Amino acid sequence: MAYARHQSFYIRDKWFSKGLTAVSQNSRFFYDDFSFEKIGLGKNMVESLKYWLIALNVIEERLVEGQRGHYLTELGQIFYENDKLLQKGESLAILHYHLVRNEDDQSTVFEWYFNHYKETVVSKPDLLNSFITWVKQNETREISEKSIKRDIDCLIQFYTKLPDENDPEDVIFSPFSKLALMKTERSGEGFDTIRKISLDITIVGILPLYYVLLTHCMRKETDLVSIDEIINGDFLWGKVFNLSRNKIIEALNVLTNHDQYPIQYVRTNNLDYIRVPQVTPIGLLRG
């Protein structure tokens, strides 16, 4: 598991497009001692940017002809070609899923908060203490509380750092604040209250929901998934997007009428299942 690799920086507006463009033009960009000058960021910010692009599953490090470099993943190529400025909510939702999925053990705090932590309203000190306790129970090595605190701070800013309405040049907001998955409220006791927000499917988008469903089935090597699992299971709709049961059923009903790849309801052993068609998550995105 990984902690505080983000250099205390949440991802800023325009970072994503700058990073994808730099890597697409030069696979050795993040090995260049002067990359920070070329991209217009501080040295620590460049390290943070590299971390975020890897954690979001849009770049990967590979050895090519004896030389290490960073290359766009299939997902990264799709974003680079279609929405590198992250103007679509669907793009943000898919990337959020990959952070929560934590495939390469890069974003532990995101996986923990959305997939394991059950409280929907909590004070910031209690949130920190809960994460400290979880880390101690699940780690075999000693993790500094300073690193854990940085992760909690970054998690909150990642989803709540909104643009300054009075400053059209504001570039320090997080693009993921548009998802509105989390809200902070100042309490009378001098600390923030953190609230998970239950989203509407129009905010998440049907495409990301389908992408998550197909990714789950591909990893499990099955074309069947129970509705109960979609609601309550790890790395699925209920947990990843804070979706209620009613919203999940609503989205599934929409997918039964999908133009290209309609899903099917199946009843087996008195349980309701969904059968997905033979299409890969990347195939779905490429349309």
Rank of each mutant, 00 (worst) to 15 (best):
G42E: 15
G42L: 15
N44D: 05
M45W: 06
M45K: 11
V46K: 06
E47A: 08
S48L: 01
K50P: 10
L53R: 03
L53T: 05
I59Q: 12
I59E: 02
E60V: 11
E61N: 15
R62T: 03
R62P: 05
R62L: 13
L63K: 15
Q67G: 07
R68D: 11
G69E: 07
H70F: 06
L72D: 01
L72H: 08
L72M: 08
T73P: 10
E74Y: 15
G76T: 09
I78K: 07
Y80V: 12
N82V: 09
L86D: 02
K88H: 03
L92G: 04
A93W: 01
A93N: 12
H96S: 13
H96W: 07
H96E: 11
Y97T: 08
H98Q: 14
H98D: 11
L99Q: 04
R101S: 07
E103N: 00
D104N: 13
D104P: 06
Q106Y: 15
F110C: 04
E111W: 10
E111M: 05
W112N: 06
W112H: 07
Y113Q: 02
Y113E: 00
Y113D: 10
N115H: 14
K118S: 14
E119C: 08
E119K: 15
T120L: 15
V121D: 02
V122D: 14
V122K: 02
K124W: 12
K124E: 06
P125T: 15
D126S: 10
L128Y: 13
S130V: 08
F131M: 03
I132P: 09
I132F: 14
I132R: 13
W134Q: 06
V135T: 03
N138E: 04
R141M: 13
I143N: 01
I143K: 02
S144I: 11
S144G: 07
K146W: 00
S147R: 09
I148Y: 09
L155D: 10
I156S: 02
T160L: 04
T160D: 01
K161T: 13
L162T: 12
